[in-house]
Structures are given as C-alpha cells and as structure tokens.
C-alpha cells in the first residue's frame, strides 16, 4: 500500500512545485502505470516513495508507516527499484556477487543466500549466467539481473522507472512478460513509470501526471474505451490497435468488450463476421 496525502515537493524554495498537493492511494498488489510527459514529475513520485527525495509538505505512507527521515531506511527495505540505464546499477564482479550484495546487507546466512540466488535467477531465466560479469550481458539481460537483485529481497513494492526505455523491442517485450510472470507467481505492488502506452495497458490502473498532479486515473479499459479521448488530449495517442478499434466503432461496428490488444480485436471481429 502506498498513500500520498497532499504531498508537495520542489527542488528549491524559489522553484515551482514539481509535485503539487498530490493525493494518491495505491492498493496492495495493484499493478499501476504512471505516465506523463518529460518533466511532469512522474519520476519524482518514485523518488519520493523511496525517500531518495524528501517531500516538503503532506504525508507519504508506505505499508501503513508514515515516511519520515528517521524510518526511511526501514521503509526502503520494502521497496525494490529498477532504473532506466542498465549500466549504472551493478556493484558485483559477477552476477552472483551482484545479487548477493543486497542479501549480505540484510545479514542473510551464506547457505540460505546461495539457495535464494539460484532460485531468483531461475525465475528470471538467467541461471546459466550466474558466474558471468554483468558488464558483458546484453541490455535486456542486465535488466533481468537488476530485477533479480531487487526481487531476491522480497520487496512489498517494485518500482520500474522507465526500466525498458533503453531496450530493443524484443528486450522490452520479454521484460514486461517477466514482470507479469513474477507478479502472477507471488504478487507485489507494481509501479511502472513509462512513456509506452503498450506497456501501460498491462497494468490494472493507469495514472496520468501533469505538472505534479493526477489529471487522469482509471483502468486501461475505461481510459481507452469508445468515446474516451482524454488520453489523446493529454498527449498520449492510443496504440494503433486501439485506434483501429475506435475506427471500426465510428463506422458503425460495435465491439463488446472494447478490445485492448490485437488478440481481443481479432476475436471481436470474428464474432461479427460469424453473425453476418
């Protein structure tokens, strides 16, 4: 659970608010996508939750504890983060050492540690790379290791801060399906900060941030459906498949339920095709 209550933040007293009286509650195990233009404040939200930046006004709660400078380290233990640049997040010489780093910090016993490392590497399909140097992996593989390093500590919350933006399309797709699989296996609260609507569609809920405030909040189906143009107007044109579905409706086809991906569109068309 994450709760923002009238939270404001700015970098300097003289600057404008980057986060402006923000109110937001994210339920336990919910998958939430946060989207917004460059400079909207969306990445700042992630940094405020983890206490990398400290809010000036209002209250932030993480799993029912109010975030304060005193309990910041305890709160951070509940959160895993994966950032944009896969190069900047390695500390170990090998994949194994890298994942062990966080476990050592938590005082996990050596025998248990190896077991946990093997288990998490299996889950991210990277076990065969256990003794490799992280630098020599591909971008997508590096991000898998970054996810493994975060998830081995069993955080309540995983934050992906534009974590796919430096990957190629295949790497992106694989990473999203990995996160989906991990979430299905053992749920956690997922916060993904992204520009890609194709990724945001995989969330239970999409939140649009503009000038440090929530300007739109709903399920993908609510936001993309039928006559809802709010996302378009905020500068997030729908993916091609959804534009096509909207085009079909405008031309007098009614599609129920409104399709969000290619598969759903094809099956909606099948039904219509068979009726004719």
């Amino acid at each position: 659970m994450i709760k923002f209550q009238d939270v404001s933040f700015r970098y300097r007293d003289t600057d404008a608010w980057v986060i402006d009286s923000l109110n937001l509650t994210i339920k336990e195990n919910q998958k939430v996508a946060i989207i917004g233009k460059n400079g909207s404040g969306k990445s700042t939200i992630a940094k405020l939750i983890s206490g990398l930046l400290l809010h000036e006004l209002g209250h932030i709660y993480v799993e029912n504890d109010q975030l304060t400078p005193e309990n910041l380290l305890d709160i951070r233990k509940k959160i895993g983060m994966v950032f944009q640049n896969p190069e900047n997040q390695f500390v170990g010489m090998t994949v194994k050492e890298d994942i062990a780093f966080g476990l050592e910090n938590r005082g996990v016993k050596r025998e248990v540690m190896l077991e946990k490392i093997v288990d998490i590497l299996e889950q991210v399909s990277m076990l065969e790379y256990i003794d490799r140097e992280p630098q020599h992996l591909s971008g997508g593989q590096k991000q898998r290791i970054a996810i493994a390093s975060a998830m081995v500590l069993e955080p309540k919350i995983l934050i992906l801060d534009e974590a796919t933006s430096m990957l190629d399309p295949v790497g992106r797709k694989e990473m999203m399906s990995l996160v989906e699989t991990l979430h299905n296996r053992k749920p956690f609260t997922l916060l993904m900060i992204t520009h890609e609507l194709n990724e945001a569609i995989l969330a239970d809920r999409i939140i649009v941030i503009e000038k440090g405030k929530v300007v739109l909040d709903g399920t993908p189906r609510e936001l993309f459906t039928h006559h809802n143009h709010a996302l378009d107007e905020l500068g997030f044109p729908a993916p091609y498949t959804i534009q096509l579905a909207k085009g079909l409706e405008k031309n007098g086809f009614s599609l129920e339920p409104f399709p969000l991906d290619q598969e759903e569109l094809i099956s909606a068309l099948w039904k219509l095709h068979l009726k004719r």
Binding site: G36, K37, Q84, E162, S165, H195, G235, F236, P237
Partner: peptide, 8 residues
Amino acid sequence: TAGLDPIS
C-alpha cells in the same frame, strides 16, 4: 527519441 514522451 529514446526516453522522450510520445508528443516530444
């Protein structure tokens, strides 16, 4: 354009 929002 990597990392830019859709409009940018």
